[in-house]
Design a protein around this nucleic acid. Structure first.
Lengths: 102, 102
DNA sequence: TTCATATATGAAATAAGCATCATATGATAT
DNA sequence: ATATCATATGATGCTTATTTCATATATGAA
C-alpha cells in the first residue's frame, strides 16, 4: 500500500454509498449539470451537491462552470477499469451475495 | 454497471473501513491465522473475526482451517490490481487530500 | 469426557456517515 | 444596483455501521 489507510478509506468510502453510485452512473454517458443530475436521479439538489463535492475531492468526477450551470463529468480513466475489475471479481467470488444486504 | 448498486455498495463498503484495510494489509505478504492478525494489528479478536467475516463474504480473503487455527489469505487476484489502480488514481487526482480526513 | 485454546456469533452500546433544513454564494440579466 | 436562477455550505437530527461485551462453538490434547 502506497498511501495511508485513511486515504484508501476515503476513496472507498466515496464509492460505498448508493446515491453516489447512482450519480456516477447517470454521468456514464454524458456530462450533466447539477439540475440535470437531480432530474435523472430524482434526488434533492442539496444532497446531490454534497455528494458531488465528495466525488470531486476524490477525483472521481470533474466539473466545469458554464454560465450559471456547473457541469460534471465522470473520470472515466479511473472509474471504467475500476468497475470492470469489480465486475470480474463479483462474477467469480460474489455470486452468493447478489441481492443481499450483507 | 453490470450489477446492482447495492452489490457495488457492499463491495466498496467492505473496503471503506480503516480496520479492515489494515487487516488486508497485514495479509499482503503471508497468510495468517486470527491470533496472528490480532498480534500484528493490535486489534481485539472479536473485532477481527467480525471484519474477516465480512471480507470473506465479499471474496476479498479466503480461509482455511488448520488444526485449531483458521488461516486467512488475501485474494491477490482482485486486491492487487485494485490497489494498483487506486494508487495510480491517487497519484494523479488525490494528491491534495493525502493526510486529510475529508 | 473434560479441559484448554482458537475462533465465531448475537446483541447492545458507541461511533460514523448521511440527508435534510436553512441559508449563503455565485452568475447572469435587467 | 437588484432580482432571479443555479449551486454550494454548515449545522443538526437521524440512520446505518462498527466495536465491544458476553457467550457459544469448534478443535485437539489429556
Amino acid at each position: 500500500m502506497k498511501h495511508s489507510l485513511e486515504t484508501y478509506n476515503l476513496f472507498f468510502g466515496s464509492l460505498s454509498n448508493p446515491n453516489r453510485l447512482k450519480i456516477l452512473n447517470v454521468l456514464r454517458n454524458k456530462n450533466l449539470n447539477v439540475g440535470e443530475i437531480c432530474n435523472y436521479t430524482k434526488f434533492e439538489q442539496t444532497m446531490v451537491s454534497h455528494n458531488l463535492k465528495r466525488l470531486e475531492r476524490c477525483g472521481m468526477v470533474f466539473s466545469e462552470q458554464k454560465g450559471k450551470q456547473r457541469y460534471y463529468s465522470l473520470n472515466k480513466k479511473t472509474i471504467k477499469p475500476l468497475m470492470k475489475l469489480i465486475d470480474e471479481h463479483m462474477g467469480i467470488y460474489c455470486v452468493h451475495l447478489i441481492g443481499r444486504k450483507i
